[in-house]
């Protein structure tokens, strides 16, 4: 796997891949610890997006993000409630001091429960859904206008978030302007807010929705970092903007939380935390 990623790394100049340095188990462990300490919610989504975050940050020059270079790639977390996973990923990529993670969701900390641009490395504060993608479109347009049309912009959306009309305003424009540097990742964890997405608004197949708007679509196992990165690279090599439908499991690797809608809201008890960590230990031992 590492060899495959090294080969991806060499395929284009700004493709500074280093996800092999980041172990999803390590990030998961950090996120569980943060959520448990803070008695915070959104465990489900924070567990489903970890590999997506690793793939996105693994595809860009994190030094430029750390330095806030004007020509940096932009990563927009449109589903802002995945804050714990985002902060943990930023820390594991060396953008955010790891010690800050201990302050997540606590009094006086900037590490709020939805991503907050006061935190170094976070491009934009989100929380209301259907915002981040539109800002990402502006970033992609701006990078093109500034003379950096190859610089990547990522937007990470939820499958429930696709119910917001502003998403499709963005998609129309992205396609019309052929903003090839914008790559949209959908965390297709099959749960919206209070119930399963297909019971709320059944939009399957998602690929047809995006293709109808003129985008190229790719479907991958959203817990396979390498597969996500290959899809990213494929869009980079293509001639139209693309979306990656990342099929994920909400609450991934937390056995009692997997695919259970209540874990959008519930906070984890001491016993549940111990059980989750033990399970991660077992999975890691088998990996």
């Amino acid at each position: 796997m590492i060899q495959q990623m090294e080969s991806l790394k060499t395929e284009s100049a700004d493709f500074v891949a280093m996800p092999h340095k980041i172990d999803p188990f390590v990030v998961r462990r950090s996120v569980l610890k943060m959520l448990h300490r803070a008695k915070a919610s959104h465990l489900g989504s924070n567990m489903s997006v970890i590999e997506m975050l690793i793939a996105m940050y693994g595809c860009v020059d994190c030094d430029k993000i750390r330095e806030l270079a004007p020509d940096r790639s932009r990563i927009l977390i449109s589903k802002g409630h995945c804050a714990a996973a985002t902060y943990a990923t930023l820390a594991h990529f060396g953008i955010l001091p790891r010690s800050l993670l201990d302050t997540y969701h606590l009094d006086g900390s900037l590490l709020t429960g939805h991503v907050n641009h006061s935190v170094h490395g976070v491009e934009h504060s989100t929380g209301g859904l259907g915002h981040g993608i539109n800002v990402a479109v502006g970033c992609a347009l701006g990078l093109r206008s500034r003379g950096y049309p190859e610089r990547l912009v990522f937007a990470m959306l939820g499958d429930g978030e696709l119910q917001e009309g502003s998403i499709w305003e963005a998609m129309m424009f992205v396609s019309h302007m052929n903003l090839c540097n914008l790559i949209t990742l959908v965390d297709n964890n099959a749960i919206s807010s209070i119930t399963y997405t297909e019971k709320v608004i059944d939009m399957r197949p998602l690929t047809a929705r995006f293709e109808g708007f003129g985008l190229s679509s790719h479907v991958v196992d959203g817990h396979d970092v390498n597969a996500i990165m290959q899809a990213i690279n494929s869009i980079k090599q293509g001639d139209k903007p693309g979306v990656i439908i990342c099929n994920t499991v909400k609450g991934r690797d937390v056995p009692f939380a997997e695919s259970q809608p209540i874990w959008h809201y519930k906070s984890i008890t001491d016993e549940e935390y111990s059980e989750a960590i033990s399970h991660l230990d077992r999975l890691e031992g088998m990996a």
Partner: peptide, 26 residues
Amino acid sequence: PERYANVGIAEQNLIGISSGLANLGF
């Protein structure tokens, strides 16, 4: 043309795109 966009009758996108451009220093 490189500093102009007609985003269509899509006001939410108008504001979002403007914000992204401001992120770029526009």
